[in-house]
């Protein structure tokens, strides 16, 4: 029974060997939010960005090509699905995998942007995210080596996970794009297409929320 006094009561659990996907009040709320945002990015049209010509009073609205929209939309939905996976999964390693997937889809969402600044920022962010796989997988490896399992269900409340592993996990998710290292990501949200760009920010916030829960629980 998964009944931590951190995140509310258990609502649902799917016993699947020792890897148990579960919903607590907390993760269920997050999952509901992810579904809402997937729906928004799946069905909404992108906005038309207004650009002001500085020093004059002219402004023009940019149009996005249909093919670019389609690609970004697909990637935004993929990003939503990866986020959903990261929120719902009951396994530390799967969480790290989903975190890396979120990183991939994040740079893919803006890949079709013609803006060179955006692409440059995406590239630099991608490199940071790639380096972040080291602490992410490293923490999963340390957890596996010290406790012999990766299941959050089993680890919950045991306090068996070393502090180093927790710190590395947070560091890894930070690299995938939360607060202090987020600055690298701030530039890529200049890209066009509000529903899709929104997904970039949303996915990293949810990763952050989920990793907070994991670190407090295990």
């Amino acid at each position: 029974m998964f009944d931590q006094n951190i995140e509310g009561a258990e609502l649902f659990a799917l016993p699947f060997g020792d890897i148990v996907p579960f919903f607590s009040v907390y993760t269920a709320t997050l999952a509901a939010f992810v579904v809402v945002f997937i729906l928004i990015s799946a069905f909404d049209r992108p906005e038309r960005q207004l650009n002001i010509v500085f020093g004059g009073d002219a402004y023009y609205a940019k149009e996005i090509k249909e093919s670019d929209t389609r690609f970004s939309r697909f990637m935004a939905i993929a990003c939503g699905c990866a986020t959903l996976g990261a929120v719902v999964t009951g396994d530390v390693f799967n969480f790290t995998l989903f975190a890396v997937l979120v990183g991939i889809t994040n740079i893919a969402i803006v890949a079709s942007a013609g803006n060179r600044h955006v692409l440059n920022a995406a590239f630099q962010y991608g490199i940071v995210a790639m380096i972040a796989t080291v602490p992410l997988f490293g923490s999963a490896a340390i957890i596996l080596a010290t406790t012999g399992t990766l299941s959050i269900w089993t680890l919950a409340g045991m306090g068996a996970v070393p502090l180093l592993a927790k710190a590395l996990l947070i560091l890894g998710v930070m690299g995938e794009g939360i607060a202090p290292l987020y600055i690298g990501k701030a530039e890529i949200i200049r890209a066009q297409g509000a529903p899709f760009v929104l997904m970039i920010h949303f996915s990293s916030l949810l990763l952050f929320l989920r990793v907070t829960e994991i670190v407090l629980v295990i």
Partner: peptide
């Protein structure tokens, strides 16, 4: 309920500003 959830909702408020 959980304070952590309240914290999560607060963080999600960022996405509202952003959106």
């Amino acid at each position: 309920e959980s304070l952590l959830l309240l914290f999560a909702l607060y963080v999600l408020h960022k996405i509202v500003e952003h959106g």
